[in-house]
Amino acid sequence: MFSQQVITQLSNGLKQLLENCDPVDAALIATVDGHMVTMEQRGNYLLERLATMGCSIMSLGDTITSELKMGICNNIISENELGIIIFMHINDDVVLVSLTTQKNALGMLLTHSKKCAQDLKTLVN
Protein backbone atom coordinates (compact mmCIF):
# COMPACT_ATOMS: atom_id res chain seq x y z
CA MET A 1 0.00 0.00 0.00
CA PHE A 2 2.80 2.41 0.91
CA SER A 3 6.24 2.62 -0.62
CA GLN A 4 9.19 1.67 1.54
CA GLN A 5 10.18 5.32 1.55
CA VAL A 6 6.81 6.41 3.01
CA ILE A 7 6.92 3.60 5.58
CA THR A 8 10.38 4.81 6.68
CA GLN A 9 9.03 8.34 7.02
CA LEU A 10 6.05 7.10 9.02
CA SER A 11 8.38 5.13 11.22
CA ASN A 12 10.46 8.25 11.81
CA GLY A 13 7.27 10.08 12.77
CA LEU A 14 6.57 7.47 15.44
CA LYS A 15 10.16 7.66 16.71
CA GLN A 16 9.67 11.40 17.01
CA LEU A 17 6.49 10.82 19.03
CA LEU A 18 8.34 8.56 21.46
CA GLU A 19 11.23 11.05 21.72
CA ASN A 20 8.99 14.07 22.27
CA CYS A 21 6.78 12.43 24.85
CA ASP A 22 8.49 10.29 27.45
CA PRO A 23 5.35 8.58 28.79
CA VAL A 24 4.54 7.02 25.38
CA ASP A 25 5.64 3.40 25.56
CA ALA A 26 4.58 2.30 22.09
CA ALA A 27 2.92 3.61 18.97
CA LEU A 28 1.84 1.98 15.75
CA ILE A 29 0.19 2.72 12.46
CA ALA A 30 -2.29 0.22 11.01
CA THR A 31 -4.53 0.17 7.97
CA VAL A 32 -8.25 0.45 8.70
CA ASP A 33 -8.67 -3.21 7.75
CA GLY A 34 -6.23 -4.32 10.41
CA HIS A 35 -2.79 -4.64 8.84
CA MET A 36 0.28 -3.28 10.60
CA VAL A 37 2.12 -0.59 8.63
CA THR A 38 4.86 0.26 11.12
CA MET A 39 5.50 0.47 14.86
CA GLU A 40 7.92 1.82 17.47
CA GLN A 41 8.13 0.87 21.13
CA ARG A 42 10.26 1.04 24.25
CA GLY A 43 8.90 -2.17 25.74
CA ASN A 44 8.21 -5.59 24.38
CA TYR A 45 4.53 -5.49 23.46
CA LEU A 46 2.88 -7.81 20.93
CA LEU A 47 1.73 -5.00 18.71
CA GLU A 48 0.61 -7.03 15.66
CA ARG A 49 -2.64 -7.99 17.38
CA LEU A 50 -3.09 -4.47 18.69
CA ALA A 51 -2.98 -3.22 15.10
CA THR A 52 -5.95 -5.40 14.15
CA MET A 53 -7.83 -4.74 17.36
CA GLY A 54 -7.23 -1.03 16.97
CA CYS A 55 -8.91 -1.19 13.60
CA SER A 56 -11.94 -3.01 15.09
CA ILE A 57 -12.22 -0.40 17.85
CA MET A 58 -11.92 2.47 15.39
CA SER A 59 -14.55 0.97 13.08
CA LEU A 60 -16.90 0.50 16.05
CA GLY A 61 -16.23 4.09 17.05
CA ASP A 62 -17.00 5.26 13.53
CA THR A 63 -20.20 3.19 13.49
CA ILE A 64 -21.39 4.49 16.88
CA THR A 65 -20.57 8.11 15.99
CA SER A 66 -22.38 7.86 12.69
CA GLU A 67 -25.35 6.09 14.32
CA LEU A 68 -25.67 9.03 16.75
CA LYS A 69 -25.06 11.55 13.98
CA MET A 70 -22.11 13.06 15.85
CA GLY A 71 -19.93 13.70 12.82
CA ILE A 72 -16.54 12.03 12.61
CA CYS A 73 -15.02 9.93 15.38
CA ASN A 74 -11.75 11.72 16.23
CA ASN A 75 -10.34 9.32 18.77
CA ILE A 76 -11.16 6.59 21.24
CA ILE A 77 -9.55 6.54 24.67
CA SER A 78 -9.24 3.39 26.71
CA GLU A 79 -8.34 4.22 30.31
CA ASN A 80 -7.27 1.10 32.13
CA GLU A 81 -6.02 -0.01 35.52
CA LEU A 82 -2.43 -0.08 34.33
CA GLY A 83 -2.31 2.38 31.49
CA ILE A 84 -4.00 4.26 28.68
CA ILE A 85 -4.46 3.47 24.98
CA ILE A 86 -5.54 6.00 22.37
CA PHE A 87 -6.88 5.14 18.93
CA MET A 88 -7.25 7.82 16.27
CA HIS A 89 -7.58 8.18 12.52
CA ILE A 90 -4.63 9.62 10.62
CA ASN A 91 -6.86 9.64 7.54
CA ASP A 92 -9.61 7.39 6.12
CA ASP A 93 -7.13 4.60 5.41
CA VAL A 94 -4.83 4.45 8.42
CA VAL A 95 -5.10 4.53 12.20
CA LEU A 96 -2.63 5.61 14.89
CA VAL A 97 -2.56 3.66 18.15
CA SER A 98 -0.43 4.91 21.03
CA LEU A 99 -0.16 3.74 24.61
CA THR A 100 1.34 4.61 27.96
CA THR A 101 1.62 2.76 31.24
CA GLN A 102 1.49 6.02 33.21
CA LYS A 103 -2.03 6.55 34.48
CA ASN A 104 -1.71 10.32 34.78
CA ALA A 105 -0.33 10.93 31.28
CA LEU A 106 -3.60 11.11 29.35
CA GLY A 107 -3.20 14.78 28.44
CA MET A 108 0.33 14.39 27.16
CA LEU A 109 -0.44 11.21 25.29
CA LEU A 110 -3.48 12.75 23.61
CA THR A 111 -1.77 16.01 22.68
CA HIS A 112 1.39 14.43 21.26
CA SER A 113 -0.53 11.69 19.46
CA LYS A 114 -2.84 14.26 17.81
CA LYS A 115 0.14 16.27 16.64
CA CYS A 116 1.84 13.15 15.36
CA ALA A 117 -1.30 12.12 13.45
CA GLN A 118 -1.53 15.55 11.91
CA ASP A 119 2.13 15.49 10.82
CA LEU A 120 1.79 12.04 9.34
CA LYS A 121 -1.41 12.88 7.47
CA THR A 122 0.53 14.70 4.75
CA LEU A 123 2.67 11.60 4.20
CA VAL A 124 -0.21 9.17 3.76
CA ASN A 125 -2.58 11.34 1.78
Binding site: M1, T31, V32, D33, G34, H35, C55, S56, M58, S59, L60, D62, T63, D92, D93
Partner: peptide, 18 residues
Protein backbone atom coordinates in the same frame (compact mmCIF):
# COMPACT_ATOMS: atom_id res chain seq x y z
CA UNK B 1 -18.42 -1.94 10.99
CA UNK B 2 -17.30 -2.08 7.40
CA UNK B 3 -13.93 -0.68 6.53
CA UNK B 4 -12.21 -0.28 3.18
CA UNK B 5 -9.99 -3.22 2.32
CA UNK B 6 -6.48 -1.92 1.72
CA UNK B 7 -4.05 -4.79 1.34
CA UNK B 8 -4.30 -8.04 -0.63
CA UNK B 9 -7.96 -8.47 0.35
CA UNK B 10 -8.85 -5.45 -1.81
CA UNK B 11 -8.72 -7.57 -4.95
CA UNK B 12 -11.56 -9.75 -3.61
CA UNK B 13 -13.76 -7.21 -1.85
CA UNK B 14 -14.00 -3.44 -1.49
CA UNK B 15 -15.05 -3.41 2.17
CA UNK B 16 -14.91 -5.86 5.02
CA UNK B 17 -16.33 -6.18 8.53
CA UNK B 18 -13.76 -5.11 11.13
Amino acid sequence: TDVRTIGEDAQYKKTTTA
